[in-house]
Design a protein around this nucleic acid. Structure first.
Lengths: 112, 112
DNA sequence: ATTTTATGCATAAGAAAATTATGTATATTT
DNA sequence: AAATATACATAATTTTCTTATGCATAAAAT
């Protein structure tokens, strides 16, 4: 998605959080929303997004619902109960990750 | 290294920063240092570490120096001038990543 | 009127970065 | 004597992503 490798492994967290906030979204909408929020800093590619959505659905974290808008098909995704739980976990993991990385790169944050 | 996928792509940043701080280190030392700083939260595996060190060396970011200690061989790595420059870049990328992810998962941080 | 861009989905080939497993060797601890 | 710690390395596999390609309709631009 971006020149830096740091976003590797972050896509699931991003998808879950956006769905947690917006109730239901379709793939293309997610790419646009991410572009908007990050001011273009992060562009999710379709080759990464769609397989990821399919996987989350297969794992039971997302439900699908089809809609026809302007003669074009949209595939809406929404969180399942399990998906909502997993969102909480993923967000906690992100905070842990940030805290740990800060401890590693900034000696000031080394403690406990 | 950890159950969460978020650390994927972070290893180079971690290695460079630790070497930036400690002048020279050997592989095993890096794994122990990371374990210590993160209180066991992050354990770098050898299968990830050694190939990564070799790659950084091949890219000219690290220099190697051998040492024999207690009849065992240590391979000390230190930053080259290029490696020091790249460390600055990687740390800036990490801060960008954290800022962007915060904007994505925390609506409070959405602005500019 | 036609081409390009935007919208909307999907998958396949390949690259990159990791995990897991294995191998070698010496020192120290149990 | 066996297990753990120290120290390096690589190979097979998995995960996640990039890049490329394909299909289809709508809107905008030339």
């Amino acid at each position: 998605m971006k020149s830096t490798n740091l976003y590797k492994g972050s896509l699931t967290t991003i998808i879950l959080k956006l769905l947690n906030e917006n109730d239901k979204m379709y793939g293309y909408e997610i790419t646009q929303k991410v572009k908007e929020i990050t001011k273009g800093e992060l562009n999710i590619t379709e080759g990464a997004l769609y397989p990821s959505l399919h996987k989350l659905e297969a794992e039971g974290l997302l439900d699908v619902e089809f809609a026809k808008v302007n003669n074009r098909t949209r595939k809406y995704y929404k969180l399942t109960e399990l998906g909502t739980q997993e969102t909480v976990n993923k967000l906690a993991e992100l905070e842990d990750y940030i805290r740990t990385m800060r401890a590693l790169v900034n000696p000031k944050f080394r403690l406990q």
